[in-house]
Amino acid sequence: MRINCPVCGERDRREFYYVGDAVALDRPDRDAGLDAWDSYVHLRDNPAGLTRDLWHHEAGCGAWLVVTRNTGTHAVSDVVLAREVVR
């Protein structure tokens, strides 16, 4: 797999670290309750198809990226800096 880092350009998969679903962008308030936190830390939509997940260009610029990707084909349709994702 190759990912088009917005900072560095297209790079091989081996430069990136993967952490999981971009659900991490929506961190609950600390008093949001156990269900909200369970959902955030554990539960996953785990879609067979388009997903948004978080990658770290660890062996490159160090940017955390939100990658829109198809889990069935590995086609990457969008890559943006996590910092720039509006919440």
Partner: peptide, 18 residues
């Protein structure tokens, strides 16, 4: 590995990533 999709038919989210 398909547990997420099947559970979704029952409206459930599982603590699983494939």
């Amino acid at each position: 590995g398909r547990s997420g999709q099947v559970a979704a038919m029952a409206g459930m989210r599982l603590p699983i990533e494939s």
